[in-house]
Design a protein around this nucleic acid. Structure first.
Length: 543
RNA sequence: GCCCACGUAGCUCAAUUGGAUAGAGCAGAUGACUUCUAAUCAUCAGGUUGCAGGUUCGAGUCCUGCCGUGGGCGCCA
């Protein structure tokens, strides 16, 4: 329907001499019902170009569209400063429901505009020096969900966790474990959390900080995997930083940069002239220290070069916490210097999640061990609630999580609201079976009897689903699915409350209405199931 | 000091990427179960979108300057 209207407007505009952009004219769903089902602002956009007043142009468009025989189109009006508003018969909504049912859970709101583009999606990548914290879970849920959404839109998504399994922090971890084991003081930069003590108890290897550190980080990584798995976050690859450094990839990267005169040795260290050479960085960066060990940036450049140039991904999306945003400029400079189109490197920055516990907010530190781990939160709230909470807002909104509020609300959490809608749908199915009520094939059912305000409201929400999935993908904003599914649940609960579905009356009219409502319910079930799967939230059949 | 974000109802967050009268949930007030699950529904109340300018038919959204908050400015990661 949308496409029909867009095409129709585009044709009229081009007849009037406007170069219509390839992605079509803009068409929106007005917020207010009296502004129609669809609204076009083309007259406002092109009036100046054509030397006409917006309202005159709108009138002209209006007249020409009215003359066409678009399906479901009831009337067209000019409104406000020059909007063209389209009013449709409710039949178009019934068509939407039929589409949902025919396409089903697998096919509806599925796209192929991703065109199998190979996307490397990196997220979380927290150092395995301790349990992951709530912020990691937030960005993890976001990244995982984004991957699901992009996969549904036709991208070939490869999810990756970059494991920092080498370097100074691993050594510090090892020293901390050894200190706990021997009863010594933990070093100043060491890790003081309780988990270090636990690790020390079961460590039986040599008293070598690097060996102990590697062992400990492997143990911790296992726990991290368990934690992430428990909220439905899965990876295709756990990519080892050590493997990058050992493979010589860093040297290849440096050679490639050196060939362009972007490398300089100074004070025994190897520098990337990301600022001096005019690449736009705020300063030059060390890639290899004077002691011969690579810096984090050195490894990360080699890693990203590997993603683009060795493994040949078409697109790389990284989700970093705000505490890593200092890395962004350097990484982009590096990729540009290596010949990568930096439009293909998207770095999304997740703002920090601050926690309030017992009415006070404290700074969390992995080093001091005084942070709330993701595990604890999952134990408190359950995996679904954590996932949904994490996907409530956008990535660039700094979140405050008041643990007291979240805990006290746990029985009144948004997740139950949407899952309850699903459980009610499933319950209807069970009752229908019990009462031996048949559901006729949808092709034999007249959906046109759905005209109750609650039914129409619900259909209107269903109608926006496919666009919501597409927007969530294009804007890298999976939380839009959350916003949408809450609307769906609200519309469903209202419908359920006001419209009896399993009428026991044998009157033929009621039977027809019951059949149509049963299919409306099924359409909601399909849509909710899709949304839940994109969000990584379970769809309980009873609660 | 410089760089990057963010600032929307008492609280937590949305807002069709520039659209028409800024929306939900929680918290507050009041009502609705003898029916398919009340973990629900309905009504009320709550706002100068941090402040001041600018751009245009139109700004929470874009530009400039302040103010506030967070993050970054290592041969840490």
């Amino acid at each position: 329907m949308r496409e029909d209207l867009q095409r129709s407007i585009a044709t009229i505009l081009s007849e009037l001499g406007v170069d219509v952009p390839p992605d079509g004219v803009s068409l929106e769903r007005p917020l207010r019902a009296e502004h129609g089902d669809w609204s076009a602002n083309a007259a406002l956009m092109y009036a100046k170009l054509l030397g006409k007043s917006p309202r005159d142009l709108a009138g002209e468009i209006c007249e020409r569209v009215s003359g066409s025989d678009l399906r479901h189109l009831e009337r067209v009006e000019v409104a406000g400063p020059g909007f063209v508003n389209f009013y449709l018969s409710i039949g178009w909504l019934h068509d939407v429901l039929r589409d949902v049912i025919n396409a089903g859970e697998d096919g509806y709101a599925r796209f192929d505009f991703g065109a199998s583009e190979r996307v490397n999606l990196e997220f979380v990548s927290a150092n395995p020096t301790g349990p992951i914290h709530v912020g990691n879970g937030w960005w993890g849920a976001y990244g995982d969900s984004l991957g699901r959404v992009m996969a549904r839109c036709g991208y070939a998504v490869h999810r990756e966790y970059y494991v920092n399994d080498t370097g100074r922090q691993v050594r510090m971890l090892g020293e901390s474990v050894l200190a706990r084991k021997s009863g010594d003081e933990i070093p100043d930069d060491g890790y003081q959390g309780e988990y270090v003590t636990q690790l020390a108890k079961s460590y039986s290897g040599p008293a070598d900080a690097m060996v102990a550190g590697k062992w400990a980080s492997e143990m911790i990584l296992k726990e991290i995997k368990n934690t992430l798995t428990s909220i439905g976050i899965e990876y295709d690859a756990w990519f080892s930083q050590a493997s990058i450094e050992e493979s010589g990839a860093l040297n290849e990267t440096i050679d490639q940069l050196r060939a362009q005169g972007l490398i300089e040795e100074k004070d025994g260290a190897i520098w990337f002239l990301s600022n001096t050479a005019g690449l736009g960085d705020s300063r030059d960066r060390v890639l290899i220290r004077s002691d011969g060990t690579p810096t984090y940036l050195g490894g990360d450049l080699a890693y990203h070069r590997n993603k683009f140039l060795v493994r040949g991904f078409d697109r790389v999306i990284d989700i970093f916490g705000a505490d890593h945003q200092g890395q962004v400029a350097s990484l982009k400079c590096g990729m540009k210097a290596l010949g990568v189109d930096t439009n293909r490197l998207e770095i999304l920055i997740g703002q920090m999640i601050s926690l309030m516990d017992g009415g006070k907010s404290g700074k969390m530190s992995k080093r001091l061990g005084n942070f709330v781990s993701l595990d604890e939160l999952i134990d408190d709230l359950g995996p679904d609630a954590v996932r949904l909470l994490a996907l409530m807002g956008s990535l660039d909104q700094a979140n405050t999580l008041d643990l007291d509020v979240v805990r006290s609300q746990s029985m009144d959490n948004p997740v139950y609201y949407i899952q309850y809608a699903y459980a009610r749908i499933c319950s209807l199915g069970r009752v229908r079976e019990e009462r031996s009520i048949k559901r006729m094939p949808v092709k034999d059912v007249d959906l046109g009897v759905l005209s109750h305000p609650r039914e129409l409201e619900l259909l209107r929400v269903l109608e926006t689903m496919a666009d919501t999935v597409r927007d969530a993908c294009e804007e890298r904003a999976p939380h839009k699915i959350t916003v949408w599914v809450r609307k769906l649940a609200a519309a469903f609960h209202g419908f359920y409350h006001d419209c009896p579905i399993l009428s026991q009356n044998e009157d033929p009219g009621d039977f027809a209405l019951m059949q149509a409502r049963l299919w409306l319910v099924e359409g909601c079930r399909i849509a909710a199931a899709i949304a839940f799967s994109l969000l990584g939230v379970s769809a309980p059949e009873r609660m």
